[in-house]
């Protein structure tokens, strides 16, 4: 388990991360969300051992990560901007990564290259941006590391490749002890893949929790309650995060289980009541509003 305790990092006296405390469980896909400049990349660079925190600690199972190669062998960091050695080819990069990562699987590497139609001996500098990203992901997957840190890695991938990579992640999760940590500002992209999410804003971690739990603890509902007094009472009884009234139709997002909220609504004799599916984006919008952040500034 990766543990961050009171981690702070500043660049030229400008705080990038402040007092971050969180833990990332093994075997789950962790999504790191946040607007541009929220500190996602910095956090990943800290976790991967590229940066040293100004204060606080980052450990993997109790061992520090920075300047600790045995621990770093369990991490593969795929940066936002893909970088390879000059004149490198997929084959040479594969050879080099095999040197660095003891669990690098050459067979899988060659198989995946073939599957994705990547020529082994073509110079990587001639690849398109998307192709480079594809190759970077394949390389990262083949390292066999426990943690794969992906910084905006899905950007630039075409939908087919994106889906294929997601499938590969799922397959890896089934096969071995694998924990991808994916940083993105695109909530929709992460919604169907992440098990856990953490939300960063202006260098601070607003929360980090399991997505299912989060979804179960929130409920979005549409209903029509003819008695305005009863409607008023319902809103005060429930822990409503957000509500909107269009004519007599009340749409609200409230904290609590679906059963409890449905029961509370039914007690007010509604003409119509139904539970609506809750997207990740809506969860975050609701949570943001609670914490007082302006949604328009946060989510793109």
């Amino acid at each position: 388990m990766i543990e961050l305790k009171q981690v702070t990092k500043s660049f030229q006296n400008i705080p990038a991360l402040e007092q971050i405390t969180a833990s990332i469980q093994e075997g789950l896909i962790f999504g790191l969300l946040g607007s541009n400049g929220a500190g996602k990349s910095t956090l990943l660079r800290l976790v991967s051992g590229v940066l040293k925190p100004d204060c606080g600690t980052i450990t993997l199972d109790g061992s520090p990560i920075f300047e600790n190669p045995p621990v770093k062998e369990q991490f593969c960091f795929l940066s936002d901007t893909v970088t390879y050695f000059p004149n490198a080819t997929p084959a040479s990069m594969g050879r080099y990564y095999a040197l660095l990562y003891p669990s690098f699987c050459q067979n899988t590497f060659h198989r995946l290259l073939k599957k994705f139609g990547i020529a082994e001996n073509q110079k990587l500098q001639t690849f398109s941006k998307g192709r480079k990203k594809q190759f970077s992901l394949l390389l990262g997957l083949c390292t066999g590391t426990k943690y794969l840190l992906c910084d905006e890695t899905f950007d630039g991938l075409d939908p087919v490749a994106r889906q294929a990579v997601k499938s590969l992640f799922a397959a890896e999760l089934l096969k071995r002890d694998f924990t991808p940590i994916i940083a993105s500002h695109n909530l929709r992209e992460l919604e169907d893949i992440c098990d856990c999410v953490g939300l960063l804003h202006r260098g601070k971690l607003l929360f980090a929790s399991d997505l299912d739990t989060m979804k179960c603890s929130l409920c979005k509902m549409q209903c029509v309650i003819p008695d305005p007094a009863a409607e008023e009472q319902l809103l005060s009884e429930l822990s409503v995060l957000q509500y909107e009234k269009t004519g007599s139709l009340l749409t609200m997002t409230a904290r609590g289980s679906r059963t409890d909220i449905l029961e509370a609504v039914h007690q007010k004799n509604p003409l119509f009541a139904e539970v609506l599916p809750l997207s990740l984006e809506e969860i975050f919008i609701s949570e943001m509003e609670v914490t007082g952040y302006d949604i328009k500034d946060l989510i793109q």
């Binding site: 991967s48 190669p69 970088t83």
Partner: peptide, 18 residues
């Protein structure tokens, strides 16, 4: 002198001394 390259090199499991 390049952020991207530093990310690439220093994320690999080798110490800075190495």
């Amino acid at each position: 002198d390049s952020t991207e390259k530093v990310d690439f090199y220093h994320s690999l499991p080798l110490t800075r001394s190495t």
